[in-house]
Simulated assay, not measured.
Amino acid sequence: MDDEIMVMLYILLEEDEARNQMRLFRRGLRDTQNPFETSDLYFKKTFRFSKELALMLINQLTPHLYSVRSTAIPAYLKVLVTLHFLGHGVYQHGAGLSSVTSLSQPVISRSISIVCRLISEHLMPEWISFPITNEKKTIIKQSFFDKFGFRGVLGCIDGTHVEIIAPPVTDLDHPPHVYINRKGYHSINVMLICDSNCRIIACDARYPGSVHDAAIWRMSDVRNYCRGQYENGDITSHLIGDSGYGLEPWLFVPFARVVPGSPEAMFNELLTSTRNCIERTNGILKGRFRCLLRHRVLHYTPDKAAYIIYASAVLHNIAVLANLQIDDEVVFEENDDPVRQPEIHENNLLQLGRMARTNYIRQNI
């Protein structure tokens, strides 16, 4: 065996030993450091949750994070590294070098995917639900009226885009061209509905960026429910949206043209001030979980990106219920004027919507 081969073998052995030492170092670091021993302020800044909320989340997810390996990553670290990623939009390198989450890049990536999926599957039904009981509807309507003076509002609706990397051209289930939105980047168009307290009561992250807000609404389960309720006699409950949506008896949108000082103009002003709830909800959501921001591209497949979006929405609601204040500023991303879609005359819904909106103005303004 010549000298060059001996030198190469020696180098390879040294590199292998170095990798083993690094694994041992990371394992020792994660086993000896306790993130919960840091200050409350540092913990909240790092994980975007308080210690109490993080412990609650860990306790709820731990039964689903069983592992048979004795050297497996503890469940609490899997949850914390996911919170770190969601909160900062920092990918594997950034989180992997954190002094409180000293894990390898592959472990971090797997942890994010697994934890977000578990949150979506096990916690989302509990934390994100559209009101269907009379009691819950009354509470939400009363809250909107107390804050804004708008009667009968069940929620505010809007779409928001979350940028993702282009799916591979070989992905037949997710053709990359359908994810290009009208601004020219790949995204998922997320339908959000919120109540007056900025709590998310509906979230749909199934559709690519090329699908319009109004189209997502027309295919949604919430619309089917609202329509069924209207047909069963509930004519006093409605959502409010911008002019990108079509007018329906259960979905109020602003008038396209109004005379200043007219009842229609006053209606538009009232609707706009009330609809600010969804703008603020989206701003708080992306301000707390910055992985969803426009310049923080999600480097995941559309399916995994959807789990990340759902998990962020669930955690947002947990934080809202706990009155956990966001330390950073609320993020209001640049938003183009809504693109008005051609009206769809389905069973005279447009005419019924105009009548419902006119009756509301006559009775309340």
Rank of each mutant, 00 (worst) to 15 (best):
D3Y: 12
E4G: 01
E4W: 09
Q21K: 14
Q21T: 09
R27D: 08
D31E: 15
T38S: 15
Y42V: 13
F43L: 10
F43H: 08
T46D: 04
F47N: 04
R48N: 04
L53K: 14
L53D: 13
M56N: 13
N59A: 08
T62M: 01
L65N: 07
Y66I: 12
Y66M: 12
S67C: 11
T71W: 08
P74K: 10
H88M: 04
V90R: 04
G94L: 07
A95P: 00
S98T: 02
S102G: 13
L103Y: 03
Q105H: 00
V107S: 15
E121A: 02
E121S: 02
E121W: 00
P125M: 11
W127P: 07
E135Q: 14
K136I: 03
I139F: 11
I139H: 11
I140N: 06
Q142A: 10
S143G: 08
D146Y: 04
G149H: 06
R151G: 00
V153W: 02
D171I: 02
H174L: 03
V178A: 04
V178H: 06
Y179E: 08
R182F: 09
G184P: 09
I188S: 01
M191R: 07
M191T: 01
D195M: 05
N197Q: 12
R199H: 07
I200G: 03
C203Y: 02
C203W: 01
Y207R: 09
I216D: 12
W217H: 07
R218Q: 11
R223I: 03
R223A: 05
Q229L: 13
E231F: 04
E231N: 13
G233H: 04
H238C: 09
G246D: 11
V253R: 09
A256Q: 13
P260G: 03
A265P: 01
A265S: 15
A265V: 02
A265N: 12
M266Y: 09
L270Q: 08
T272C: 13
C277Y: 02
R280E: 10
K286I: 06
F289D: 03
L292G: 02
H295C: 03
H295G: 00
R296I: 08
L298K: 01
H299I: 01
D303I: 10
Y310A: 08
A313N: 10
L324Q: 15
D328I: 04
E329V: 05
E333Y: 02
D337W: 03
Q341T: 14
P342L: 08
E343S: 12
I344G: 01
A356G: 04
I365G: 13
